[in-house]
C-alpha cells in the first residue's frame, strides 16, 4: 500500500498544476465553454486570451468553483475542484475581475480578516507588498481608487504563499503605471517561489511579457495553445502581388485569415514553411511574395477575424 500511496503523491507533485478535461458550460442552448482540454505545467505561466464572450471568465469561474461544471472536469494541484475546493483554496490565490470586498474596513482590518482563513499566511510577504505598492494600511477600502483596490486584491491573494495564482483580467481599466506595479508584484511572487500562474487578459503585450504559453479561446473553444515564442516564430504574414485581373486559386490549409485588395493578397498562415511558400507560388498567379513576422496582437486579431469570416 505504501508504494501506491507514494506513487499518488509523486504524480500529484509532478503533474500539471491545473488540468482541464473536456470542460463544458452551457447557458440555455448556447455553449459558453465547450469541451475545453488543457494543462498548465507547474512553474509556468499561461495567458488566456480571447475576445469578450469567448469563455475566459466562465472557465476561470468553473475552476474557482464559482460556477457548476456541466461536463468534464477541472483539477488544481491534482484535486478535483468540484470536491475539494476548501482544501484547494488554502493553496491557491485568486484575483477576481471585480473586487467585491468589505468596503467599510480599513486595509489593516481586511488583511487581519483574510489572514484568519489561511494556515500559511506570511506577514513578511504581506508587508513587503504593502511597501512595494505604497499602500497605507489605515485607509478604508471605500476610499481606494481602482488601481489601489486591485493592488490590495493581489496582496490578499498571494500573502499565504499560494502554489497557484489565478488572475481574471487583473489589469483591465488600470493606468499604465499601476499596471507596471501590479505586474512587478506578480513577478516577485513568481520569482520567489515556483508559482504557477493562469491569467486572462486583453493586453497582449502583458501576455507576451508574462506568459510561457498562450491559450486562445473563441466561442468557448480552444483555437491555439502553445508556447508564445513558438507561435511568434511559426506564424507569418504573407503578402503576394497578383498578376493583372486574376484571383488566388489555391489557399494553404494553414491560412488563419486572408484578404484580397486589388493586386495585393494578404494572408496570415500558421505554421508557415518553405514548402507552403513554394506551393503558394506554384499554384497561384502571383508576381512576387514577401514574408513577414507578426506580433501577438495582430495574430490575435487575424485569428478572430478569420473565424468571423470578415476581412
Amino acid at each position: 500500500m505504501s508504494t501506491i500511496k507514494g506513487e499518488t503523491i509523486a504524480t500529484e507533485a509532478n503533474g500539471p498544476a491545473i488540468e482541464l478535461e473536456g470542460l463544458t458550460k452551457h447557458y440555455g442552448g448556447t455553449a459558453a465553454v465547450e469541451n475545453l482540454t488543457l494543462a498548465v505545467p507547474r512553474g509556468t505561466t499561461l495567458g488566456l486570451i480571447g475576445p469578450n464572450g469567448a469563455g475566459k471568465s466562465t472557465t476561470i469561474k468553473m475552476l474557482m468553483g464559482m460556477l457548476t461544471i456541466d461536463a468534464g472536469r477541472a483539477r488544481i494541484l491534482g484535486l478535483d475542484v468540484s470536491e475539494n475546493m476548501p482544501a484547494i483554496k488554502q493553496r491557491i490565490g485568486y484575483v477576481p475581475e471585480l473586487h467585491q470586498t468589505y468596503r467599510w474596513m480599513r486595509i489593516s482590518e481586511l488583511i487581519g480578516f483574510t489572514r484568519s482563513f489561511y494556515k500559511t499566511w506570511n506577514d513578511d510577504v504581506c508587508d513587503s507588498l504593502l511597501d512595494l505598492f505604497g499602500l497605507d494600511r489605515r485607509k478604508k477600502v471605500k476610499q481606494l481608487s481602482k488601481g489601489m483596490l486591485t493592488k490590495v486584491s493581489l496582496l490578499l491573494a498571494v500573502s499565504h504563499e499560494p502554489e497557484v495564482l489565478i488572475l481574471d483580467e487583473p489589469m483591465s481599466g488600470l493606468d499604465p503605471l499601476v499596471r507596471e506595479e501590479f505586474l512587478d508584484g506578480v513577478l516577485r511572487v513568481v520569482c520567489e517561489r515556483q508559482c504557477t500562474v493562469l491569467f486572462s487578459s486583453h493586453a497582449l503585450g502583458d501576455v507576451q511579457r508574462m506568459a510561457d504559453n498562450v491559450a486562445m479561446l473563441y466561442d468557448g473553444k480552444l483555437l491555439v495553445h502553445c508556447p508564445v515564442d513558438e507561435l511568434l516564430s511559426s506564424a507569418k504574414r504573407v503578402r503576394a502581388v497578383l498578376r493583372d485581373g486574376v484571383l488566388p486559386r489555391w489557399q494553404p490549409p494553414e491560412t488563419i485569415w486572408q484578404q484580397v485588395q486589388r493586386r495585393e493578397w494578404l494572408l496570415t498562415v500558421n505554421p508557415c514553411s518553405p514548402a507552403l511558400l513554394d506551393q503558394l507560388q506554384a499554384e497561384n498567379p502571383v508576381e512576387h511574395v514577401e514574408v513577414n513576422s507578426v506580433g501577438l496582437e495582430d495574430l490575435f486579431k487575424d485569428y478572430v477575424k478569420g473565424r468571423r469570416g470578415t476581412p
Binding site: 512553474g43 509556468t44 505561466t45 507596471e180 505586474l183 512587478d184 513577478l187 516577485r188 513568481v190 520569482c191 520567489e192 511579457r209 508574462m210 506568459a211 510561457d212 515564442d229
Partner: peptide, 17 residues
C-alpha cells in the same frame, strides 16, 4: 535570473531561456 526578470518585467522562465 530573478533580478533580470523583475527589472525587465518578464517571466523568469523567459530570462532563463
Amino acid at each position: 535570473q530573478r533580478s533580470l526578470a523583475v527589472s525587465l518585467g518578464v517571466n523568469p522562465n523567459t530570462v532563463q531561456k
